[in-house]
Design a binder for these strands. Structure first.
Length: 505
RNA sequence: GGCGACGUGGCCAAGUGGUAAGGCAGAGGUUUGCAAAACCUUCAUCACCGGUUCGACUCCGGUCGUCGCCUCCA
């Protein structure tokens, strides 16, 4: 894993941590619908967790909700709403989006509003330790003092504190001793809670220090968030946690992912943006997930309809392979990868394979290792994804061969199962049984009723008609019938075994 | 001004000190009544300039360019 602090790759998780790893991801401020950028973290960590579990770890994954915040309060004022209700609404909506995207729930979603007393206690300790002071009902973190004692402020974001004072754009505040100081607690008579310093509410950074360490311990394995949180948010979290615990061990690894950009700039709720759920109408959730996974997490990724169409098309190749495997194997499809690997992998079986079969088999056989190796390499999802396409080609060659043998059929079957297995980690490549459920999940978010018309029966009738016309060599008429079938949402494929219908997305 | 990331074929995107995965698009071909699907073939010397090295796209320095953060933006 790449660590932001060292800018180097480190072995992760450290062997001493086996078998449990602890992860904290900075979550969402709940004042609006989530946009696609907000989903990069959750999608990445959904895959990362599944991957860690696959290679034998137990994962404790926590991501928070910032439901007490300037932005929430401001939005509530603008819309004349109660701010805690507003926060609850968007928390709920966000969870629906996560579900629609097939993202496994975190182990815990702590909210700021449930941790006010904890935060007050936490701030007290920092004050007692001498790293914070009170000023007109506000509590500020004393950055210069902390830095003088520990010398670590700016370590994460590689900032020089002396230069920051002259160059930074933080506005001077009468209450602060120093420009760099930041609020741990803000006086707020209107939306505040009682505290030893009067009515107020937590500053932004304190919640994450408190909630991460409360549930994961003073020192935990990964702290993650988008790149823009590196400074000041994460830098301040480190300072708070160290000022609180007195030790220099907060997160072992800092993992920052890049932005999702759109039209040359970043997606942001404050700028031009769109809600992720708006995409559900146009793209199925796997397309969205595959798009996010199609670049490394440390690179920015540009969203556009063109990109999404490309993803969709590439995905269609896999679907077509699945379709062909299911069509040809039908009932005889073997469900266990291990059975097939054991059977096909024994020397006797190998001896009877043709050269072509042997070649494909060895590629399929080594797939899983390559796939996991890529993910092991700083979570290279794009590399892992490309492995899937690497076995689709040879497997397609096999299954479409006119002289397909039983062995060849089994090898193709194995390739199919390997891809399903990879998909279970990536949250992709569900076969048709699950497709309907996902559509339903997305539709629930959109409030669309799940009406599925029975067009298949009709299409089948038309297909028979087309066959008859073809037999009479009335090709024009046959093509017209085919057009009708396409209108019903099916493709017609003429296979050596006769025509078949394939539902179009 | 400070800090950070990045610049790989028409587009997107991995990767590596020893001559560049994968996807999309393009061209040609096999198959097909046609189409669809599939397969085969074909398409780059890695922004530029220096340096280190037997050898660099990969390491170092510089130049140019793009983007982000420094504003409670994921």
């Amino acid at each position: 894993m790449h660590n932001t602090v060292t800018k180097k790759l480190h072995e992760f998780p450290p062997p001493s941590k086996h078998p449990e790893v602890t992860i904290y991801l900075c979550g969402l401020t709940t004042y609006d619908y989530a946009h696609l950028g907000n989903m990069r973290g959750p999608i990445l960590f959904d895959v990362f967790r599944k991957f860690l579990v696959e290679i034998g770890y137990r994962v404790k994954f926590i991501t928070n909700f910032t439901d007490v915040d300037d932005k929430v309060i401001q939005r509530a004022k603008e819309t004349d709403a109660d701010y805690s209700q507003l926060a609850r609404k968007f928390t709920r909506e966000y969870l629906l989006d996560l579900t629609a995207l097939g993202i496994e729930h975190a182990d815990l979603y702590p909210k700021v509003s449930y941790h006010i007393q904890d935060i007050i206690d936490y701030v007290k300790v920092i004050i007692d330790n001498g790293y914070a002071y009170e000023s007109n009902g506000n509590i500020y973190f004393d950055v210069p003092k902390f830095h003088a004692d520990k010398g670590t402020y700016g370590k994460l974001s590689r900032r020089n504190i002396d230069e920051m004072v002259t160059e930074c754009r933080i506005e001077a505040d009468e209450n602060k001793h120093d420009q760099l100081d930041f609020a741990l607690w803000k006086a707020d008579s209107e939306n505040g809670w009682e505290s030893p310093w009067g009515k107020g509410r937590p500053g932004w950074h304190i919640e994450c220090s408190l909630m991460s360490t409360k549930y994961l311990g003073t020192s935990f394995d990964i702290h993650s968030g988008a790149i823009d949180l590196k400074f000041p948010h994460h830098e301040n979290e480190v300072a708070q946690a160290e000022a609180h615990s007195g030790t220099g061990t907060f997160a072992q690894v800092w993992m920052h992912y890049e932005f999702v950009n759109w039209k040359g700039g970043k997606l942001a709720k404050s700028g031009e943006s769109f809600a992720v759920r708006d995409l559900f109408e146009k793209y199925d959730v796997e397309t969205i997930r595959q798009f996010i996974l199609s670049a490394k997490y440390r690179s920015p990724i540009d969203f556009s309809d063109e990109r999404m169409e490309e993803v969709k098309k590439s995905r269609a190749r896999i679907d077509n392979f699945f379709f062909e495997v299911r069509r040809q194997l039908g009932e005889s499809i073997e469900e266990s990868r291990h059975n097939l690997i054991n059977k096909l992998g024994n020397p006797h079986e190998k001896k009877n394979m043709s050269d072509a079969e042997l070649k494909v088999f060895s590629e399929v056989e080594s797939f899983a290792e390559k796939f996991l190796d890529d993910l092991c390499d700083d979570f290279n999802t794009q590399g892992a994804l490309s492995r899937v396409f690497e076995i689709v080609n040879p497997a397609n060659t096999l299954i479409n061969a006119p002289d397909l043998s039983d062995t060849g059929r089994e090898i193709a079957n194995l390739a199919y199962l390997e891809i399903l297995w990879a998909g279970s980690i990536l949250g992709l490549f569900n076969d048709e049984r699950d497709e309907l459920m996902q559509i339903t999940a997305a539709n629930k978010v959109l409030g669309i009723g799940g009406i599925v018309s029975d067009s298949k029966g009709e299409a089948e009738k038309l297909l028979e008609e087309r066959q008859k016309l073809k037999g009479e060599k009335k090709y024009k008429e046959a093509d017209a019938v085919r057009d009708k079938i396409i209108e019903l949402g099916f493709e017609v494929r003429d296979t050596p075994d006769g025509p078949v219908l394939k539902p179009v997305e």
